[in-house]
């Protein structure tokens, strides 16, 4: 178990370093100095700035300097905000975590009952409704769901705030917009795995010795369907953490994703690098947690 954990953490570190190298290389394809200086800057001023930012050095050397500093917790200052990039990202991280977690809770709260009940009542009106709902969910991009929610719930009905991060009310709509697609995907997957499990010999055996239906469905069968569900959930949660920027922009949510996108447009390399690095770290951590949860959910996959 400990060996497995160490191996997995090392693998994660390699992934994160790899991600940092890629984002570092890609962001060096463009020169930010012209964006940072006034439009009438002289060539000397440009050269000066390039030297000050270390952009005149060979790219490999630049990367090694970046890595060396990063190991000491120094990711440089944001060009745009002129503050430590790490502090800026860490400041936004809680908002992103909060939003992704809320999106996940919303997705699970709908997907589990939908998936289970449409398998139990296969081909019923509920199953058809859930199928339609899942199809709509998978066909609607989250920015559009977000815009519709703002239009109907905020503008027309005035029930919830359309933007910002102030209290629970402002979290509801972004969470729904973010969780909408995963609800659909997880409902469909859970339905099909539950159908398989409910048809299995051990479920019939449990029924034959008088285990009540609710226990068979919600304990015996659902636990068997949990491994694929958790796998999918991990992928979506990692995506929500690193890819929530569209929803963050629509709802003016002060999260990491929005800041990274803004950094990209401003060629704010230090900020961009930290942002991407954090996305990579979150992705690796979530995947590790998912893998560790397999052992808890299914005794056959326990790591010795």
């Amino acid at each position: 178990m400990l060996n497995y954990l160490i191996k997995r953490i090392l693998q994660g570190v390699i992934s994160i370093v790899g991600a940092s190298a890629i984002i570092f290389a890609i962001s060096r394809l463009d020169d930010p100095t012209l964006l940072l200086l006034p439009i009438d800057a002289t060539p000397e001023m440009v050269e000066n700035l390039r030297q000050r930012l270390g952009l005149d050095l060979p790219i490999v050397q630049q990367y090694l300097i970046f890595l060396g500093n990063a190991l000491q917790g120094d990711f440089g200052n944001s060009y745009r905000w002129e503050q430590p990039a790490l502090a800026l990202i860490l400041d936004r991280l809680p908002a992103t975590l909060e939003l992704a977690f809320a999106g996940l809770v919303f997705a699970l709260a709908l997907a589990i009952p939908f998936g289970v009940l449409s398998a139990v009542y296969r081909d019923s009106w509920f199953d058809n409704f859930a199928k339609l709902f899942a199809m709509l969910g998978q066909a609607m991009p989250n920015f559009w769901v977000g815009l519709l929610l703002i239009l109907f719930v905020s503008v027309n009905l005035g029930w919830l705030p359309a933007f910002g991060r102030e209290g629970f009310d402002s979290l509801i709509m972004p969470a729904i917009a973010l969780g909408w697609y995963p609800v659909a995907a997880m409902t469909r997957m859970l339905r099909s795995t539950m159908l398989d499990v409910l048809d299995s010999d051990h479920v019939r055996m449990a029924r034959a010795i008088g285990v009540p239906n609710r226990v068979v469905v919600w304990k015996y069968a659902l636990r068997n369907a949990a491994v694929p569900l958790v796998t999918m959930l991990g992928i979506y949660f990692a995506n929500m953490l690193s890819g929530a920027f569209v929803v963050e922009v629509i709802f003016a949510w002060p999260g990491m994703g929005r800041m990274v996108v803004e950094a990209m447009f401003a060629r704010d390399f230090p900020l961009l690098q930290v942002g991407v690095l954090f996305s990579a770290i979150l992705f690796v951590v979530v995947n590790l947690l998912v893998d560790l949860s397999y052992g808890v959910l299914d005794p056959r996959i326990r790591h010795d």
């Binding site: 055996m205 034959a208 008088g210 949990a226």
Partner: peptide, 26 residues
């Protein structure tokens, strides 16, 4: 049927021992 019949009056030994037990419960 659940409370008084299945398991108590009549029960079953099913076909395949390899698939008749739930893999995730002791």
């Amino acid at each position: 049927m659940v409370r008084d019949v299945r398991g108590k009056l009549v029960s079953m030994i099913s076909q395949d021992p390899m698939t008749s037990l739930n893999p995730v419960f002791s």
